[in-house]
């Protein structure tokens, strides 16, 4: 048996298993919550049979969007992280390394901490997600402008980090002069959560997100060439500049979509690609991309369940759960890798 066949056999076993796990997580996510519900009832509600109106609303408009958002958001963050890890050839890079979340945070802090947007609160629908998306897009276009000019990927990485620092500096300045009462809401946003998705937001995130995920598959060939480094990729026929712009667009687009609607969710984008590599036993991105998306969905969905059940009805901060879970995983995997070499 050829090694590539062995790899494909493993993928054929692992991918469906992951998909199945994802469905289980999804079902659990619909069933657990601080309001009691029996799974039979939830099942009937999903299929449109009227039950308790209250529960019906909760399952259809609170749990269902939240479950879908957690799964989709997790997949998108993880794939975004994978792209950047391969591109920068750096295992500790995550989707926010190019300043996407910092840009979003800056705009949200402008809206929430200053009186700039007081008149718009509750008047402009989706004010916070719109602000976050604007900030993420701003950071993204800045990074893309840089991406089209620099020669080396590492310059781009440093630029991204610097953009992050700059926007964080402005944000902390805004915090200094903000009233205590306003900071409460801002802190809440900074923690990130899949709570409270509306169907509109979800539809938007999912539709643009899936277009981007398809685009990711379109650059998977070049991404594989990048496993040998930027120079080798170039000599194998990759148009580095065009590829870099495409990659930044897709990866930042994915993380911007999630950040805008859920706030910054830590560690999923960093830890999951490592888990995917371990599960698939390969760095071949054509297999890693679907595995990363599925594991991202499972991890984020599971962490979201933990976040809402751990101290129910109090919500535990999602980023704390993902970090608590993700940091040891990354340490473990990197140590393993070190030992292996």
């Amino acid at each position: 048996m050829k090694p590539s066949e062995a790899r494909n056999h493993r993928a054929m076993a692992v991918l469906p298993l992951l998909a199945l796990t994802m469905i289980v997580v999804f079902w659990l996510s619909l069933n657990v919550g601080s309001v009691n519900s029996r799974s039979g009832e939830v099942w009937r509600i999903i299929w449109g049979a009227a039950a308790d109106a209250n529960l019906d609303f909760i399952v259809r408009n609170i749990r269902l969007p939240r479950a879908l958002a957690a799964l989709g958001g997790g997949a998108m963050l993880a794939v975004s992280g994978l792209l950047l890890q391969v591109f920068f050839r750096n295992p500790i890079v995550g989707p926010f390394v190019l300043g996407i979340s910092s840009g979003a945070t800056l705009m949200v802090s402008l809206v929430m901490l200053t009186s700039v947007a007081v008149g718009m609160v509750g008047v402009v629908p989706y004010l916070t997600p719109l602000a976050a998306f604007a900030g993420a897009l701003g950071a993204m276009s800045l990074v893309m402008a840089v991406a089209s000019r620099v020669k080396q990927g590492v310059t781009l990485l440093i630029t991204g980090i610097m953009i992050g620092y700059l926007t964080s500096a402005v944000t902390s300045l805004l915090i200094t002069f903000a009233e205590a009462e306003r900071i409460k809401g801002f802190n809440l946003w900074q923690l990130g959560s899949f709570s409270g998705y509306t169907w509109t937001e979800l539809a938007l995130m999912m539709s643009i997100g899936s277009v981007l995920l398809v685009l990711v598959y379109g650059i998977s060939k070049q991404l594989n060439a990048f496993l040998l480094g930027e120079n080798y990729a170039a000599t194998m026929g990759v148009n580095i500049r065009r590829f870099r712009i495409a990659l930044v667009f897709v990866s930042c687009g994915l993380s911007a979509l999630v950040t805008a609607t859920a706030g910054p969710v830590a560690f999923v984008g960093l830890a999951v690609p490592h888990m995917a590599r371990l599960a698939m036993g390969t760095s071949d991105n054509k297999l890693l991309i679907p595995a990363t998306a599925l594991i991202g969905a499972v991890v984020c969905g599971a962490c979201d369940i933990v976040a809402r059940m751990l101290f129910a009805p109090v919500e535990a901060p999602l980023s704390a759960i993902t970090s608590f879970f993700g940091a040891p995983v990354v340490i473990m995997l990197l140590l393993r890798n070190r030992v292996k070499q």
């Binding site: 026929g237 760095s283 071949d284």
Partner: peptide, 20 residues
Amino acid sequence: DRLKPGLLTAYEVAALGRHP
């Protein structure tokens, strides 16, 4: 440049040459 292709087999690394 030292190659660090992660979890790629020797065959897969050689096969990357088929890129163009």
